[in-house]
């Protein structure tokens, strides 16, 4: 394979120019005005605008057809997918995962270095269980948290010093955790082996949104003897169920490649 430092990508440069243009002055421009200002063919400008529209960076006025900066740009720093919307979009697949695996399902999103439980489906055995939605879990000691950390370099780097131990098996040394997170990225899923609660294990996989960005994690957890096979590793069938469910949600959210 020929390796060379790739040059700038022309369409991204043009997209940036369009955004700068819209950020100026009245902030409302038609396709022709934009094409004219930047010396682009109308079709080219239109194609870029449609893509920017698709990711929410520009919005189009229903009446005049003119473009302006999109709301998504203002929220770039915060989570772009509302957690309640994530629950709505995932609820069918979370139910199916619980039914298939026979275990409780949780969906988590990152919040202040922890995992916010945004959805919880009971283990389907009709025993008394309590909804966990709104609870905060430690990121380094849960499968959900490890998935979120594995795909967010910034959050992982923020974990320094001794990490809080919950059991003998909690990974408390950042270097050990970093190794585990690299494995999560390699495998595409994370496991939790009695690291949070003795006797409990879990498996989780990433939920991706548009462009592949990880917006949450979805997983099952339960008694270690049910989650793990004889070798002490998570049951491969269970792992497949979890990954398939997370992928189905990702597909619904518009992550095309997963």
């Amino acid at each position: 394979m020929l390796r060379s430092v790739p040059g700038p990508v022309q369409s991204i440069e043009r997209a940036a120019a369009i955004l700068r243009l819209l950020a100026r002055g009245s902030g409302r421009l038609g396709v022709s005005e934009i094409a004219g200002s930047l010396g682009l063919a109308r079709g080219t400008a239109h194609g870029i605008l449609r893509t920017l529209h698709g990711v929410g960076f520009v919005e189009q006025d229903g009446e005049t057809g003119k473009y302006r900066l999109g709301a998504a740009l203002l929220h770039l720093g915060t989570s772009y997918l509302d957690v309640n919307e994530l629950r709505s979009r995932a609820i069918n697949w979370a139910d199916a995962l619980a039914a298939r695996s026979g275990e409780a399902v949780r969906i988590g999103t990152p919040l202040d270095g922890k995992v916010l439980v945004v959805h919880h489906v009971f283990r389907p055995d009709d025993t008394l269980q309590t909804l966990d939605v709104g609870a905060l879990l430690p990121a380094h000691a849960t499968a959900l948290g490890k998935v979120l950390l594995a795909y967010d370099a910034g959050a992982a780097a923020a974990l320094t010093g001794q990490l809080e131990p919950f059991t003998r098996r909690t990974k408390t040394v950042p270097r050990d955790l970093a190794k585990a997170l690299a494995e999560v990225r390699d495998m595409g899923w994370a496991a939790e082996m009695e690291e949070m609660t003795v006797g409990e294990a879990g498996v989780a996989a990433p939920i991706r949104g548009q462009g592949g960005l990880v917006v949450g994690a979805m997983g099952v957890s339960g008694a270690v003897e049910r989650i793990c096979g004889p070798g002490g590793r998570p049951n491969p069938t269970l792992v497949t169920y979890v990954r398939d469910a997370a992928r189905a949600v990702s597909r619904d959210l518009g992550a095309s490649r997963w």
Partner: peptide
């Protein structure tokens, strides 16, 4: 069919 019914959440 009844046996397929399970509680997923309770408030």
């Amino acid at each position: 069919l009844r046996r397929n019914w399970h509680r997923a959440a309770q408030w």
